[in-house]
């Protein structure tokens, strides 16, 4: 059996051929990445959540629990939903009242509001937040698994890549609110 060592020139040639294409591909990769960097668009999920929050107001009866001429939606924890709600507030009203969006940073800051959206990014415990929700008239909406069971009135969940919501009728009535049967029919009821 005759043995053979690949000669140096052959190796060198292969090496050059090997590197040329890779470098081109690498450049292309970075080009693609730089081109496809996302523009500052808001996440579609929060577009939908904001629309949900707005639509919920049609199915909840605050009765006489909305003082003043404004309908306040509070948000605790940073969330992309804020800019979306701001967008809705520009053109829509709730029960003929102007929509105001308020950002709260910690539970102690929570002031009077008709809806309190609890962002999944907040680092505070749900119990601490609910303890600070002032009296009656606030619909709490969360977006974390198990939160409806733990006391939030409404909780967003994802089923098969679609947004659904859980409703906790006890939590809703404890807040002095009434939910329409239509809303409860669409919701996943959590006791």
């Amino acid at each position: 059996m005759i043995k053979y060592i690949p000669n140096k020139n052959y190796l060198l040639d292969s090496w050059q051929i090997k590197w040329k294409i890779p470098l081109q591909l690498l450049m292309m990769f970075f080009l693609i990445c730089s081109f496809t960097l996302p523009p500052d668009e808001d996440n579609e999920e929060y577009n939908i959540k904001a629309a949900f929050i707005y639509r919920f107001t049609n199915y909840i009866d605050w009765d006489s629990l909305i003082p003043g001429k404004e309908f306040t939606i509070g948000i605790i924890g940073s969330s992309p939903v804020k800019s979306q709600l701001d967008e809705i507030a520009k053109t829509k009203t709730v029960k003929d009242k102007k929509i105001i969006i308020v950002q709260f940073n910690k539970p102690e800051d929570i002031g009077p509001c008709q809806i309190l959206f609890i962002s999944q990014k907040t680092s505070f415990h749900l119990g601490d937040i609910l303890a600070k929700v002032p009296g009656k008239g606030t619909l709490t909406i969360s977006e974390k698994e198990g939160y409806a069971k733990k006391g939030a009135a409404i909780n967003f969940i994802e089923v098969d890549n679609k947004l659904k919501f859980e409703a906790n009728p006890k939590g809703i009535s404890a807040a002095g609110l009434k939910a329409s049967s239509q809303l409860l029919k669409l919701a996943i009821i959590v006791e």
Partner: peptide
């Protein structure tokens, strides 16, 4: 779709 546009959708 923007949030404002979606807010006209039903639940």
């Amino acid at each position: 779709s923007t949030a404002a546009h979606l807010s006209d959708f039903s639940l």
